[in-house]
């Protein structure tokens, strides 16, 4: 049994008298110990999906409209608040793009780390807590950990703050770590350090990771399977190698083609996906990629495509994926 099941999950937000479905019937599983990537551009619903797993949708505007999230078979949306608090932090932990939003600027690093122990692990002696905090900072590769414990978050660099946040998430040895763009604000050489750290920690602890990002390079480097989202829906799901070698959704194909690559010839035009993502107020009733898709047919604007199996372990939501797979109509603008 997968450790986490997202089952036909829909999430709605109230906006000035209107109800907008920002995530529409998303379904995927997470196996124990694996790293699953969720990739998509701004507004695709990847972060909102993560927040809903944690029971952290902004209230009262956001809510789960339909579907279920099950952790080891237990439905999370219907849990009592105390039980959910126990799972959140203890069994499922989350790290964010900007650690300063999660770290309290007026408390020393040591105190905040210790708090995660007192909150989630009950009574431990101060001495034990101190030793464990030191151990955590060492585990996430922070130099001079004793000194760091007495510093404030603003005294740390961006990379070090992200390490502290990872240490806090690890404190209770969670089964799942949800990482929402944790390296997006970091420089590329620091990002490489953090990705290496996450890989090492996963090997040591066996936790599963959901890694949310807009960067297909990071996905390729870290994940074993990937979910591609577009405008609140799943477009495609596959193992990492099939996704990059044989993408079948026109959006995935266009996205992969439009990345500037190091081996490209300088000053040549890039492949582009024409147009823009439909705004959340004007979502079409049919396929949400229809207005930018080279394979679009009448059916696409009438009916939203269901997720179907393209091959074992490879699912796609596109009426025209067979044509897209052959690449016959591809004439991405440039």
């Amino acid at each position: 049994m997968p450790i986490l099941e997202i089952d036909q999950l829909s999430i709605a937000f109230d906006t000035e008298g209107d109800v907008v479905t920002v995530v529409d019937r998303v379904s995927f599983d997470l196996e124990a110990g694996e790293t699953l990537g969720v990739v998509g551009e701004s507004g695709c619903g990847k972060s909102v999906t993560a927040l809903s797993i944690m029971g952290l949708l902004p209230k009262p505007a956001g809510r789960i409209q339909g579907g279920d999230v099950r952790f080891k078979g237990e439905s999370l949306p219907s849990l009592a608040p105390e039980r959910m608090r126990d799972i959140r932090g203890n069994r499922i932990a989350m790290i964010f793009q900007e650690p300063m939003t999660a770290l309290n600027p007026v408390h020393r690093v040591g105190r905040q780390l210790a708090e995660t122990y007192t909150l989630h692990q009950g009574e431990l002696s101060a001495d034990v807590v101190h030793r464990r905090c030191l151990g955590l900072l060492e585990q996430v590769g922070i130099p001079a950990p004793e000194q760091r414990l007495s510093e404030y978050p603003h005294q740390l660099s961006g990379g070090m703050r992200q390490r502290v946040m990872i240490a806090m998430a690890l404190a209770s040895k969670p089964d799942i770590l949800i990482a929402d763009e944790p390296t997006t604000a970091l420089d590329v050489t620091i990002q490489a350090q953090i990705l290496e750290l996450l890989r090492d920690l996963q090997r040591e602890t066996g936790m599963a990771i959901i890694f949310i990002t807009h960067d297909l390079g990071v996905i390729a480097e870290l994940c074993s399977r990937v979910v591609v989202m577009y405008a609140g829906r799943m477009a495609e799901q596959a193992g990492i190698e099939p996704l990059f070698a044989h993408p079948v959704h026109p959006y995935t194909r266009g996205l992969l083609a439009s990345i500037p690559r190091l081996e490209d010839t300088p000053k040549t035009l890039l492949t582009t996906i024409p147009g823009v993502v439909p705004s959340i107020e004007e979502l079409p009733s049919g396929c949400r990629f229809a207005n930018r898709c080279p394979y679009v047919k009448d059916l696409c604007s009438r009916e939203a495509p269901e997720l179907v199996s393209a091959s074992p372990g490879h699912r796609v939501a596109c009426h025209r994926w067979r044509e897209a797979e052959a690449g016959t109509l591809e004439n991405w603008g440039s």
Binding site: Q191, L195, L216, A220, E221, F244, R261, L262
Partner: peptide, 8 residues
């Protein structure tokens, strides 16, 4: 350090 969009 640049992550390449190529798992192979």
């Amino acid at each position: 350090a640049i992550p390449l969009p190529d798992p192979t």
